[in-house]
Simulated assay, not measured.
Amino acid sequence: MTDLLRLVDAAALDDLGRFAARARALEADGAMRLQATGDVLAAWVGVLPGSGILAEGTVLGLRTFALAEPATLDAVVPLGAVTDRTARPGSGGADLPVPPTRALAAWAAVTPPRGPWEPLGDLPADLLADVARVGLAEVTEAVKERGAAAGLVRDRVWARDVREATGPHPDLMAGGSVGPTDVPVRAGGAFAAYALGFLEPGSVVRVLRSNRWIRLTAPGGHVLMR
């Protein structure tokens, strides 16, 4: 197993660090799964946990990075260890020493398929951002009012279809390729794409399906939902 990942340049290493920092803002003690095969590194993070034997409701974030040297690795490590190794000022390098500490993450046992992925259409990134902001406001208010009992509200908010989360939306009414009765996309996917910084204003997010999985492919990365 590789103990050092050499990314293509320092900018890519910084990008990986920002991704890890955003994920850590969602879960301070969270984990990242580093999967390297050949010259590609797949970096996975968990956003929302699933439940039951099939882990229904799981929402994952994924970024891929080019490697300057081929590597083989599959390790789940603490997010804090990744941010520590990507935040050293003035290093100017592109090397990521693989953290020796391993982390436990239930979502890491759930591996989405590599494909084939069936294209289902597109959704406006602005719609997903609006859904995420509305949901965050609801969850924040529930936490203020109910404290630890806000979990049921949180689950309900992120389980909604994105087209139900904000009511009629101008981007959909203008004629997006995914209509109001087509593929269901949970609001939890919008939350993940927004929180991880994947959405660009005015852009389009592709929606794909493979068996029980839905994938959102945005300019900044991928969200996978089961």
Rank of each mutant, 00 (worst) to 15 (best):
G50P: 12
G220N: 06
D29R: 08
M32Q: 10
D126V: 02
G147E: 12
G38N: 14
A71V: 10
A132Q: 05
M32E: 03
V143I: 11
G38Y: 10
R163Y: 08
A81G: 07
F198C: 04
A174Q: 14
P168G: 11
A28G: 10
G151S: 07
L41N: 06
P116F: 15
V134L: 12
G61R: 02
G38L: 06
V204M: 12
G57Q: 03
R186P: 02
E56I: 05
V139C: 12
G93M: 03
L199S: 12
A42F: 02
A75N: 05
T166D: 01
T111A: 10
P116T: 12
G188Y: 03
L54T: 11
S91A: 14
P180C: 03
A108D: 03
S51F: 10
M1Y: 04
V157E: 01
P170R: 15
W158D: 04
L48S: 12
A66Y: 13
S91M: 09
P97L: 13
L120K: 12
V77S: 03
A187P: 06
M225A: 04
E56L: 14
A43S: 14
D9K: 12
L224R: 00
F191M: 06
G93F: 03
A105S: 14
T64W: 00
T101W: 01
A148R: 03
A28R: 11
V143T: 12
A68D: 15
G52W: 11
L67C: 14
G189V: 06
N211L: 10
A10S: 15
A81R: 05
A125W: 01
R154A: 15
I53Y: 13
T111W: 04
A150D: 00
G93A: 13
P89Q: 08
T72V: 09
L127M: 11
A142C: 05
L62S: 00
D182G: 13
T140I: 04
A71R: 05
A106P: 09
R24C: 01
D161K: 00
E118W: 02
V162P: 13
R186W: 06
R160K: 13
V139S: 10
A28Y: 04
D171C: 07
V204T: 15
L4T: 11
T83D: 07
A23Q: 00
T181I: 07
V207I: 14
F198N: 03
R156E: 07
L48Y: 12
L136G: 15
I214R: 15
A66F: 08
D182E: 11
I53E: 14
S91C: 05
D161Y: 01
P184A: 05
G115A: 12
R212H: 14
F65D: 03
D3R: 08
R206A: 15
A190C: 01
E118L: 12
G93I: 01
L196V: 06
E118A: 08
V205E: 01
T58I: 07
G90H: 11
M225G: 05
G80D: 11
V59E: 01
R186N: 02
T181P: 07
R114I: 02
V110N: 10
A149S: 07
A142G: 04
D15N: 03
R160Y: 00
T86L: 02
D9G: 09
A75S: 15
P180H: 09
T58D: 13
G151I: 09
A28E: 09
R186Q: 07
S177W: 06
L34P: 05
A150F: 01
G135Q: 07
L26C: 01
R63K: 15
